[in-house]
Simulated scan of single mutants.
Amino acid sequence: MPRPAAWRLSPDAYPVREQVQTRYQDLDTNGHLNNVAFAALFETSRVRMNRALGMWEKVDGFRAVVARNEINYLAEGSFPDPVEIAIGIGRIGNRSWEMLAAMFQNGHPIATCDTVIVMTAPAGETLPAALRERLEELGISGNQVP
């Protein structure tokens, strides 16, 4: 796996940042955060952002699902230190968008996560204009997405 682009490893590149507390149950037998914990921590931030985007509102039959989720592990994480998740929107398509995130602990990058969300309903329609506008507002700074 190639190392992520340098901009992905800076929390300043992302429009949204939040601290998420790690839990003792997140540890594996080696005493560091296990891979499932990384996925759950990223999911927490992704769901919070989707809620802020209005994704939990039942509007005009709109539905979207996770189509792809890729985590790149860069370093070990530990308990009890919280992690900072930095997240923003990457590419926006006709019926999908990319959520790009990075996880930091004690100021160091420990993982990145790329998630593709795909609109499943209504069939045959493009992203609603209001949602597209909100996604664009949360785009990664400097249009660094290739």
Rank of each mutant, 00 (worst) to 15 (best):
M1R: 11
P2V: 10
P2I: 12
P2R: 07
W7V: 06
R8H: 11
L9G: 03
P11Q: 09
A13T: 13
P15F: 04
V20Y: 05
V20F: 10
Y24V: 14
G31L: 00
G31M: 04
L33P: 04
N35M: 03
N35G: 03
F38H: 14
F38G: 04
A40M: 13
L41G: 01
M49H: 13
A52D: 15
G54M: 02
M55R: 00
E57Q: 04
K58H: 06
K58W: 09
D60P: 08
G61I: 04
R63W: 09
A64H: 07
V66M: 09
R68F: 02
N69P: 10
L74P: 14
F79V: 15
F79K: 14
F79T: 13
P80I: 11
V83Y: 09
V83R: 00
E84W: 00
I87L: 12
I87K: 01
G90K: 03
G93S: 02
R95D: 01
S96A: 05
S96I: 00
S96K: 06
W97S: 04
A101Q: 12
F104Y: 00
Q105S: 01
P109A: 08
P109E: 06
I110M: 01
A111Q: 06
T120D: 00
A121D: 15
P122S: 02
A129D: 10
E136N: 01
E136V: 05
I140N: 01
I140H: 01
I140L: 11
N143Y: 02
